[in-house]
Write a protein that binds this DNA or RNA. Structure first.
Lengths: 101, 101
DNA sequence: CTTGATTGTACGGTAATACCGTTCAGTATT
DNA sequence: AATACTGAACGGTATTACCGTACAATCAAG
């Protein structure tokens, strides 16, 4: 029997979570060192890891260059997160389905 | 023999291209009408279709609601485009690969 | 206990960007 | 000729990812 492959209401995790646990912690780096390596301010990286900012294309490229993590994958994660966040506010956007006459 | 499945240097198209040709033109809509349906300014939609702006999560949701096109797919297209654009300016970002000592 | 490293977060400022409303100049199409 | 459509400009607003700096809290090692 195959493993359960049903996906219902899956909620993505913020890219910052992934970067913290699967990249920085996995390499045994402190946030301070990681920020130095990436060439950004410590506060900037902190905001990302604590989900107070989005993963920018610039930051994604830095992470790819420094830690060999696919920029495309990281940006897809961000896109998925954006979509999920948008869906939770979908009712605020008032657009009716178009039906050809 | 299978079809050629090799991907080398694939360059994504801007989401605006897709939306224009595969959504709006396919439905036989004018840009003016599409903008009305989406509830945005005509100039805003024009900028998107002519690649002078990015596809925002808000706009992606509007297109999904109006035209039943997956918001997630549209945002993945934008993410792919962003990555491609970033790669073409990769030399401007100065980050060295990290190697554990 | 004291020192040093690490972290979260705040302040003000800058640049980019996706919007808005409006307007004008082209280019169809009827 | 009249009408519809489009591209693009103008100025303005709000958001956001950065910067430099600073301060307080935590925690581990001497």
């Amino acid at each position: 029997m195959a493993t359960n492959n049903i996906k219902v209401n899956m909620t993505p995790s913020h890219p910052g979570d992934f970067i913290r646990t699967e990249v920085i912690e996995e390499l045994g780096l402190t946030m301070t060192k990681a920020a130095q390596i990436l060439g950004v301010r410590r506060a900037t990286l902190s905001a990302l890891l604590n989900e107070r900012s989005s993963l920018s294309p610039d930051m994604a490229l830095r992470i790819e260059k420094a830690f060999d993590v696919s920029m495309d994958m990281l940006l897809r994660m961000q896109a998925w997160w954006d979509a999920s966040q948008m869906r939770s506010r979908a009712s605020e956007v008032n657009v009716r389905r178009y039906e050809p006459a």
